[in-house]
Amino acid sequence: MTPKSEGHILSLLREPVTKEKGFRVMMDTYKERIYWHIRRLVVTHEDAEDILQETFINAYRFIGSFNGQSKIYTWLYRIATNECIRLLRNRKKMKQNIEELTDKHIFKLGETDMESGDEILVKFQNAILRLPEKQRLVFTLRYYDDLPYEEICYILKTSVNALKTNYHYAHEKIKQYMLNN
């Protein structure tokens, strides 16, 4: 996505007449990328679909508050991540037990349709799901979405050093899990 087309989406979204067109363009451009980011965090398709909708609806409604300091997709990542965190925390409150929730996610991951050769990916995903929340977020954004630390800083509101530390710990834990299981 070039900055020029981002500007085009923004100008469409900010005009009441072209707002819906802007929404369509924005969704068509970013929906898959944002969906997979959400799916990796919440695991189930139903949750991911709800959060994806919520993310774009919030972006549509509050486009006026977007100050343009970041890129649109970074802003969308931030909204989506916050929605995921909210959902996971609500679930944690209900479950009262983080381990139980992680196990549930891992179980659901095992239920998904897998093609042959995906076993290693499932194992890798299991390792990610076992990480603490912050490490999981940093690792997912850095490893899968290939976002620079500066943008992850904006999404997670953390310093670069803290992110690097979290990523390092996450990397080590995953490596250990893959080797030992």
Binding site: F23, R24, M27, L52, Q53, I57
Partner: peptide, 9 residues
Amino acid sequence: ITEKALDEA
């Protein structure tokens, strides 16, 4: 999903 989300919005 695009039209679904737009309707909801």
